[in-house]
Nucleic acid binder design. Structure first.
Lengths: 143, 143
DNA sequence: TTTGTATTGAAAATGAATATCAAAAGCATA
DNA sequence: TATGCTTTTGATATTCATTTTCAATACAAA
């Protein structure tokens, strides 16, 4: 699966005429090895620890490329940091965010997606993307 | 209705032991006179034009207070600016955002809200808040 | 008034993200 | 393999929204 994703990114890169570089390979490997919702800073530190030479800007640039290629998706929660999650074709993750402990739980609900499409078409919109976040307290934090 | 909101904010302020100041009155008046989704900068400029003395920081601070009091709600679209909308008890606005012309259309859907509550309770969450934005192209921009 | 504290505004600081630009690296071609 | 052109990189500076700092000011209770 990771291999497929690498291939997918490589063909995206080839199509765009991008060169293949050591840095992009490393960032891709490490990004693919992470869990969901990693912030740029977190990823940067992770990369730094094994590859001290790689710069801040490169990580930002490369993650934008991943998003463009469809490999990753940007998410903006309420703390002013951009995070990236692994994106797969046609797959959508919505989020339950605990404001107590910052736990993020993913969910999908086909009925909601369907209703979104209905609402959009009722207003003449063509959906590209959507995001939905529910903020609250998880059972642990309510205690 | 505007009067009620002012009263509501004043009792919130009283409860918190906040003082009543000329600046907060002015900012409240002007905020209440605006339409939905005003950015801090836009509001600041509007305020500045009639009250040149009022500072940037005060506008930021006061809007945070409004949000805390329940009078306003923060919204974060994807351009790095915080906007505020008028919030009313129990009322929720979700948004259809046109990425072509930045038009924002509000909608509400009780079925979606119900499904959200179900999902949350299934995960043991108590909802405080939610946001949902659908990004796409409106009929004009698709032409 | 007087006094204690909250609030303000100007300016500085922060922090995320982007731009700049010279040096380095990739890649096609000779 | 060497050459030359172009992309990419990384250090640094910059931008922009927002927050902090702090001395001066305003509020409200006594």
């Amino acid at each position: 699966m990771i291999l497929e994703k690498k291939k997918a990114f490589n063909s995206f890169a080839a199509e765009k005429g991008l060169r293949s570089t050591r840095q992009r390979d490393i960032i891709l490997d490490i990004f693919l090895s992470t869990h969901q919702h990693i912030s740029v800073e977190e990823l940067y530190l992770k990369i730094k620890s094994s590859n001290p030479g790689i710069g801040h800007a490169t990580v930002y640039r490369t993650l934008k490329l991943f998003a463009e290629s469809g490999l990753a998706r940007e998410i903006h929660l309420h703390d002013g940091q951009t995070r990236y999650e692994h994106a797969m074709e046609g797959e959508h993750h919505d989020h339950l965010v605990c404001t107590g402990c910052d736990t993020i739980i993913e969910f999908e609900d086909e009925t909601i997606e369907k209703l979104q499409r209905e609402i959009a078409s009722r207003h003449g919109f063509k959906i590209n993307n959507h995001k939905m976040e529910i903020y609250g307290l998880c059972s642990d934090c309510r205690k």
